[in-house]
């Protein structure tokens, strides 16, 4: 479904953030992208929806080459790629509802969105999603009144209301406590399963990644140096990705302990 072909990004400073990355993500598959800070994880997913312009190579979504689209075509394809951010990236002075409905901006005209007259079906879907993540009572709160975990749930709703085929998820748990992190990861993975969505999840926390995904891709200095099942992440592989450390302590098998879902 998503296919990256020799995707490369060289910043103006000369830093080579991505080096000929080839990656194929089939429909419905959730993959974790791991690697140290500065490895190019963020750049990779931003090159897919072209918040960052790739220098060369291509990204193809269902046969459409995103890299060569003009601005109108790019806007149409961006609707099919929902993005979830590290610091939630909700527009803080807008209400929760406005934030979620902003996920429909690619589908409605300017005046409709300016006057906040979104189609009833969009509003209904927004309420359904809010209810699904357990925040139905928060619709008219301003986004900056919510806690971190709540904000990220709204961020997830905003991405899902786009009716995307692919989720691009950038460090969704980096600003959250361990318990909320698990809840958010579980929510993302569940939503992907329910809607048969593919997802690329950038994540620092190797253990958290292993708990929730079927496939892990390792990035180091812009090079893809690992692609396999979570079980194949040996200390040797982690040393290649992150550098020398005592990885045995990290790799202890995590018990999928008592499931307490926040929703």
């Amino acid at each position: 479904m998503l296919k990256l072909d020799k995707l490369t990004k060289i910043y103006k400073t000369g830093d080579k953030a991505l080096s000929e990355v080839d990656l194929e993500v089939p429909k419905g598959q959730v993959i974790a992208l791991i690697g140290p800070s500065g490895a190019g994880k963020s750049t990779l997913i931003r090159c897919i929806n072209r918040l960052v312009e790739p220098t060369s190579g291509s990204a193809t979504l269902d046969g459409i080459n995103i890299t060569t689209l003009n601005s109108g075509g790019l806007r149409r394809e961006r609707r099919r790629m929902g993005m979830i951010f590290q610091e939630y990236a909700l527009v803080e002075r807008l209400t929760v509802m406005e934030n979620i409905l902003s996920g429909r901006l690619g589908y409605v005209g300017f005046w409709r969105s300016f006057l906040r007259k979104f189609p009833q079906s969009d509003v209904d879907e927004a309420y359904r999603l809010l209810d699904r993540v357990g925040l139905a009572h928060m619709a008219d709160k301003r986004a900056d009144e919510l806690s971190g975990g709540q904000r990220q749930r709204v961020g997830i709703c905003r991405a899902l209301i786009q009716d995307p085929a692919l989720l691009l998820v950038d460090e969704p748990t980096a600003s959250l406590d361990p318990k909320t992190s698990r809840e958010i990861m579980r929510l993302i993975v569940e939503m992907c399963r329910e809607r048969d969505l593919a997802a690329i999840i950038n994540i620092h926390d190797v253990n958290l990644a292993k708990m929730f995904v079927q496939r892990v891709v390792g990035l180091e200095m812009g090079h893809m140096i690992f692609d396999g099942a979570p079980e194949e992440l040996s200390p040797d592989v982690l040393t290649r990705i992150y550098g020398e450390e005592d990885w045995e302590a990290t790799i202890e098998t995590v018990d999928d302990d008592d499931e307490e879902d926040g929703s």
Partner: peptide, 14 residues
Amino acid sequence: QAEAVKSTGASWLQ
């Protein structure tokens, strides 16, 4: 925050 709005496929004015 602005990037997030752009990533939804919003037009420039939106």
